[in-house]
Design a protein around this nucleic acid. Structure first.
Length: 783
DNA sequence: GGGTGTACGATTTTT
DNA sequence: TCGTACACCC
């Protein structure tokens, strides 16, 4: 160790407050290192301090460090915490997701493996579309070959690094698999023709690049002296291969993970990667972090007791210094309404009546998104503010994808997928007959569909639609000209484009006819994209600032003009889906799936729907492997709670339009009695089929005492509070207003939307118009 | 070419 | 139960 040569203060600071195992992990120098980090064991702290240690104590160049995470959120948290420790030199490190890091490599070298370096990334919607068109090309029936199923086969093959050829020979004469092989081949051909990669390709092609180009491999192997991988239990085979390749030269690979929290096998994660790490990387050091700093004794012991039933795991047992704390409360409710009311009442009691907690201390966790509904309803009745996490992500929204497709088309006119998306959005009278012909002609002549549009008049087949097609082509080139005129910022350009394409107008027209607030939300989203663009451009400016000294190959990637900024913005939109950084502070109850709760913690957690068939899901009950993954899910859910855990199950539940009777989840029965208070019925009682998994693990369990405080205590349910009034906007019906174009008018109708209002205004001599107040630049003249 | 009705189907999620 | 994708009809 060379730490003796360094400032003692620095080493003290980096090791301060760490337990012996944590400190050992931070100080580890050469060779592979496996950190088995139990839930709440201070994992992030260890990783960030370790990176700081490498730089500050071992004098490793920041640019020689590669730290990989699974989500952008995790990456940005890691970045900022490392920056707090070592300052701005941290910007030279490669910290990011697998996909983002591999994109850096592919953007430089993709031409070596047959792509244009400006290749596009297609999202899962487009992936489905491509699969669909392949099925059509191959005359395969979508009933037998469900798009989703075929696509997931292809994706799984890619994650396992099985290319088309290998897949074909594996499939042999198997009816289904051999057809999937044909689709796979067709799919890859289409992507290649469109100069696109899907998310899986980013990993697969990175492997192919590194394995086929020795000089490229050598460059990065040489560069990355230290490689760190977070959430290693979630890596798939392609990621495993990348990690191996990149760390091979120096051998300083540190992986951090917890096999008990592996919950993503359905998307290709291979738990064997972490279980076999010691075999794979010889002379590897293993450090277990078993002290939990998060939960109270009852919660932790209960979670330990549950996860202990799993066979395939590394033995470890979390412990805590904190006392037992409150018991876990288990509620057996009659149905989902009672379950919801219980949650609402309990939250209200803690927040309003006792004033002990705030709304943000609470989270409701469920296995299926569909379970959120009844909880939502109960919270709404009680006037409790909440937010649902997950759901459609911002960049997945239709209107956003439309705008992004226009953007992509402007910088890459040959992108057929984007063209198909927006050629008739908004309606331009270009229907399926025309678009089919367009695709066929482009295919026949080996040119892009945009090229056919430009020359539409020369194709006799397109006679009737020719003028509309050329008009579309000139719209795109006009948008392209706007891009190069240099006097617009990104958000100004987007704003201009939203109007120029007619998208905004169409949404306003829709709003005029339809009563739903749907179109308004979309306009809101488009506005939000503008503020996102502003923020993005600020980041770019900061990177481009003259006093920053970026390494040359990274500097080359910083956009220098609007066109390059657009490209970078598109890439970010494809790879970065989270937009709610500042919303974390809101004082609201959080509703989320167990999957999306991983890595988070809350003072009080409700786990709802703890019923056999839901959790574990009925699909997983046939296989030991899948059943154990469900149990890990239960473990993850329980260990989110810092101080108090509630688990609820119903006797019968209305789900997907059907009411069914349910039995308590076996996982709940695996919790020892001494940690649980029961309400409304015991965890035991009716059971379904003898449960092979659990019956063996609960030998001679003593009878459960009768329930103590049945929920018949209905009076305790508080009367619903009136819903909160929407924030007032400073425009109201009857106001006189002035519009820059239409002049003076009077407001006929005002409807508040987040931070703005949609108005119906009657203008003298112009007629009635509908618009967003702020966006239209209305001024109030008085009532 | 566009609008409307209906049948179907529905874990978990990131990139 | 609810959303959406597709077929059918004008």
């Amino acid at each position: 160790m060379t730490e003796g040569n360094n400032d003692k203060k620095v080493t003290d600071r980096l090791l301060h407050g760490l337990n012996p195992q944590q400190a050992e992990a931070v100080r580890h120098d050469q060779g592979p290192l496996l950190i088995l980090a139990g839930a709440g064991s201070g994992k992030t702290r260890v990783i960030t301090h370790r990176v700081a240690w490498l730089v500050r104590v071992l004098d490793v160049r920041p640019s020689a460090i590669l730290a990989i995470t699974f989500t952008n959120k995790a990456a940005s948290e890691m970045k900022s915490r490392i920056e707090d420790l070592i300052g701005s030199v941290s910007q030279y490190m490669w910290i990011g997701t697998f996909h983002a890091m591999m994109m850096r490599i592919l953007r430089r070298y993709a031409d070596r493996i047959g792509y244009d370096r400006s290749f596009a990334i297609i999202d899962s919607d487009d992936q489905q579309k491509v699969v669909k068109s392949c099925l059509a090309d191959l005359n395969l029936d979508e009933k037998t070959f469900a798009v989703k199923a075929v696509h997931s086969q292809i994706s799984a093959a890619k994650n396992a690094l099985i290319d088309v050829g290998a897949y074909e020979s594996q499939a042999g004469s198997d009816f289904f698999r051999s057809r999937v092989a044909q689709v796979y081949r067709c799919y890859q051909a289409k992507l290649k023709k469109n100069n696109s990669m899907d998310f899986d390709d980013i990993l697969v092609e990175a492997v192919r690049l590194l394995e086929s180009q020795p000089d490229v491999l050598a460059e990065y192997q040489e560069r990355f002296q230290y490689v760190l991988v977070d959430e290693y239990q979630d890596t798939n085979h392609a990621q495993y291969r990348l990690v191996r390749l990149l760390s091979e030269r120096h051998g300083n690979l540190c992986v951090v993970g917890d096999d008990d929290q592996s919950i993503y096998s359905f998307r290709g994660a291979n738990i064997q990667n972490i279980l076999d790490f010691e075999k794979d990387f010889k002379r590897c050091k293993v450090i277990k972090l078993e002290q939990n700093y998060r939960s109270t004794g009852n919660v932790l012991k209960a979670a330990n007791a549950v996860i202990r039933h799993n066979q395939g795991r590394k033995k470890k047992s979390l412990w805590t210094q904190s006392d037992d704390g409150e018991m876990i409360t288990f509620l057996r409710a009659e149905d989902q309404n009672e379950e919801g009311r219980y949650i609402a009442r309990e939250i209200e009691r803690q927040v309003s009546r006792l004033g002990r907690k705030t709304y943000r201390d609470f989270a409701v966790l469920y296995r299926l998104n569909a379970l959120s509904r009844s909880v939502e309803q109960a919270l709404r009745e009680q006037g409790i503010p909440y937010r649902i996490y997950g759901g459609t992500r911002f960049y997945d929204r239709k209107e956003i994808k439309d705008i992004l497709a226009y953007l992509r088309l402007v910088v890459m006119p040959d992108d057929n997928l984007s063209l198909e998306r927006v050629i008739n959005v908004p309606r331009r009278g270009i229907g399926s007959a025309t678009t089919d012909m367009l695709a066929a002609l482009a295919e026949r002549d080996g040119v892009s569909q945009m090229a056919v549009c430009q020359n539409a008049t020369r194709y006799p087949e397109l006679q009737r639609a020719a003028s509309r097609l050329t008009a579309f082509a000139s719209l795109i080139s006009q948008l392209g000209a706007g891009l190069d005129s240099e006097d617009k910022t990104l958000d100004q350009y987007l704003d201009w484009m939203e109007n120029e394409t007619g998208l905004i107008q169409e949404l306003l027209d829709q709003q005029q006819r339809i009563v739903s607030g749907d179109a308004l939300d979309r306009i809101e989203n488009l506005k939000e994209l503008l503020s996102d663009a502003v923020e993005f451009e600020n980041q770019v400016q900061r990177l481009a600032a003259p006093d920053e000294t970026l390494p040359p190959e990274e500097r080359a990637l910083v956009p220098a003009n609007l066109r390059e900024t657009v490209r970078a913005f598109l890439e970010r939109a494809a790879l970065y889906t989270e937009m709610d950084q500042d919303k974390d502070q809101d004082d609201v109850v959080r509703l989320l799936t167990i999957h999306s709760a991983k890595g988070l913690e809350f003072d009080t957690v409700f786990i709802v729907g703890a019923e056999e068939g839901l959790f574990p899901g009925y699909r997983s009950m046939g296989s030991q492997i899948e059943f154990e993954e469900e149990r890990r899910l239960a473990y993850v859910a329980m260990t989110r709670a810092r101080r108090k855990l509630h688990i609820t199950a119903t006797r019968s539940r209305l789900l997907f339009g059907q009411t069914q009777r349910y039995v308590v989840s076996p996982f709940v029965r695996e919790i020892p009695d001494e940690h649980v208070d029961e309400i409304g019925g015991s965890r035991e009682g009716e059971r379904s089929m003898p449960w092979s998994e659990t019956s063996q693990s609960l030998p001679g369990r003593p009878p459960i005492p009768a329930a103590r405080s049945p929920l018949a205590d209905a009076a305790a349910y508080m009367a619903p509070k009136p819903a909160q009034k929407a924030a007032s906007v400073h425009f109201s019906v009857g106001d006189k207003v002035e519009h820059p174009k239409f002049g003076i008018g009077r407001i006929l109708m005002a409807e508040p939307v987040a931070g703005d209002a949609i108005l119906q205004v009657e203008f003298k001599g112009v007629g009635t118009k509908r618009m967003l107040a702020k966006m239209a630049g209305l001024t109030r003249l008085g009532g």
